[in-house]
Nucleic acid binder design. Structure first.
Lengths: 141, 141
DNA sequence: TTATCAAATTGTAATCATTACAATTTTAGA
DNA sequence: TCTAAAATTGTAATGATTACAATTTGATAA
């Protein structure tokens, strides 16, 4: 099992032209396994137990590299921290204002200014905010 | 002229249930006149010349209040700073990765998860990133 | 008008995410 | 093995934002 996921993260790194060091594989692996849109700090906290030598700077460096190479994406739906997402297929995000959870949701069909003659668009982010089903039912008693 | 814009900012504040103090009117007025999606710090820098007693904390407090009351909106398209926008009619944003300018663009028709049965959506933000026309033509010589 | 109380504002210090940077370690290839 | 480049580390700096206690302002009632 572990071998397989390690392999997956290694393959992913190679696919995006990133030399697969141990730490990079560990971080990539974490991202592939945890689709919770973690912050740099959350990743650090979770990995620090297993690999005490892993520094927070490496987390930041690696995440920045992964984003630059297109292996993961950055999302700014959370006003406090930058969050990261290993899912790079088109999708949107919904943040519950009550529990703070960020959900992956299907991307809407975008019309509007996809008109490439005006702006050269390289990225589209759609952020929804509101109350998720769980919190809503809790609020209703 | 000045009287008119002051009046407009006062009216706007009253409309949103905010008691119109001098500073709040000044900040609201700035927001109404400058559709550049300014940061708290930019607002402070611009107003500080005229009103040296205006503190940065008041800028932050006021912006937060204006957002809470719905008089302006917060946008997080810029990874560094929170930006604010007096335009509250539905529209989207385009950020040029070269010059950093943030443009207002028409909102796309949103299909997808506007399905209210799943999530109670209170806010939708659409962020585009890429290269704006000006920078693109400059890059082409 | 004056006293009073709440609201508004201020300045400073604290917090917290992120980055800069120089030093050290690791890795791959000659 | 040796060496240069790449990767990683720890610490300090930066910069945005918030906390908070103190002060000022403004509206109201006596």
């Amino acid at each position: 099992m572990k071998t397989i996921t390690k392999l997956n993260s290694q393959e992913t790194l190679l696919k995006y032209g990133i030399s697969p060091s141990i730490h990079r594989m560990t971080i990539m692996n974490y991202m592939l396994q945890h689709r919770t849109h973690p912050t740099a700090d959350e990743i650090y906290s979770h990995l620090h137990g297993d690999i005490p030598t892993l520094s927070k700077t490496t987390i930041y460096n690696t995440l920045k590299l992964l984003v630059a190479k297109g292996a993961i994406q950055e999302i700014t739906i959370d006003e406090k921290n930058t969050r990261y997402d290993a899912e790079i297929e088109p999708h949107s995000h919904f943040k519950c204002n009550v529990c703070g959870h960020i959900y992956d949701v299907p991307s809407p069909k975008i019309g509007g200014i996809t008109d490439k003659s005006i702006y050269k668009i390289s990225e589209v982010q759609v952020y929804y905010r509101g109350i998720c089903t769980i919190c809503r039912s809790l609020l209703m008693h």
